[in-house]
């Protein structure tokens, strides 16, 4: 399965990645709709109803509409992708995702020529989400990608981990995974995907533009105002583990650097 991971130079490195255990991946989460503690999502996300589920695909597409999860999955090929996952809080994991390329889904809906960005929205269901009682950030959680980022072959829509269905705390039943960006770009439990011609608002960027840029590419040279991004703590390595250096674009520089050619990555952080 690891062989399916790679794209050119990414392959060799991807195969060397040792994934975190199921327990680590599914008990150490940020999903503020269920609380701000790392163990809150595992504790409370079980009450989220994920079936039936449908995703509204709208905006500048040929075939807008509400797609049921079954409709989407029956048209997609699920594969395994072992990716590094780097949180903006300077911790990281390696996750063996199962999913399909976002590009396949967007092509299914038919992207119109004027579309330049993709906007995503997470489910907002207060009766099942104890965390949204507090305005930690503005709900619902929204994210966005430039169209070329969204169409990149590394950009995944995940449906599972370790061959098992995605647990709710990890963003069931359908979440984005953009491995070269900080984790919060990989929006969970998606209910809406809109093709638009202007850069869409994104949840953390609305909270603080200075701290959380629209691009949020993993970059060891651009610090968060409150902490260094030069290194990261690998989840599961224990109390005394040495931090490891953070890689440019989270190790996917060969694949994605060209998307940002000529851009000032400190300004467009």
């Amino acid at each position: 399965a690891a062989g399916m991971v790679g794209l050119g130079a990414g392959r060799a490195r991807a195969e060397a990645l040792e994934p975190n255990g199921w327990e680590e991946i599914t008990t150490y989460n940020n999903f503020y709709e269920f609380g701000t503690g790392k163990d809150d999502p595992a504790r409370y996300a079980g009450q989220m109803t994920t079936s039936p589920w449908s995703v509204t695909i709208d905006g500048m597409v040929d075939k807008p509409g509400d797609y049921t999860l079954d409709q989407i999955l029956s048209a997609m090929t699920i594969e395994e992708r072992i990716y590094r996952f780097r949180c903006v809080e300077a911790w990281s994991m390696v996750v063996p995702w199962n999913g399909f390329e976002l590009a396949d889904l967007l092509n299914m809906a038919g992207v119109q020529s004027g579309a330049k960005f993709v906007a995503f929205e997470t489910l907002l269901r207060p009766e099942e989400m104890p965390g949204v009682r507090y305005p930690v950030i503005e709900w619902p959680y929204v994210e966005g990608l430039r169209l070329d980022e969204a169409m990149h072959p590394l950009t995944l829509m995940a449906t599972g981990i370790y061959g098992k269905p995605l647990p709710n705390q990890n963003g069931a039943p359908l979440r984005l995974v953009v491995p070269w960006k900080y984790g919060y770009k990989s929006i969970k439990s998606i209910v809406r995907i809109s093709l638009v011609d202007k850069q869409p608002p994104t949840a953390w960027n609305k909270y603080s533009d200075r701290e959380y840029g629209f691009y949020s590419n993993v970059n060891p040279n651009v610090d968060h105002p409150r902490w260094s991004q030069a290194s990261e703590r690998r989840v599961g390595s224990g109390l005394f583990a040495k931090k490891q250096p953070t890689l440019m674009f989270n190790g996917y520089e060969a694949e994605v650097a060209s998307l940002y050619a000529g851009m000032d990555l400190a300004k467009f952080h």
């Binding site: 150490y28 790392k38 224990g238």
Partner: peptide, 18 residues
């Protein structure tokens, strides 16, 4: 708390928790 951090009681990433 230190013991909890070593023995897993503070979760898989104990430093920040501690």
């Amino acid at each position: 708390l230190f013991w909890q951090g070593i023995s897993g009681g503070l979760g898989p990433e104990p430093v920040k928790g501690l």
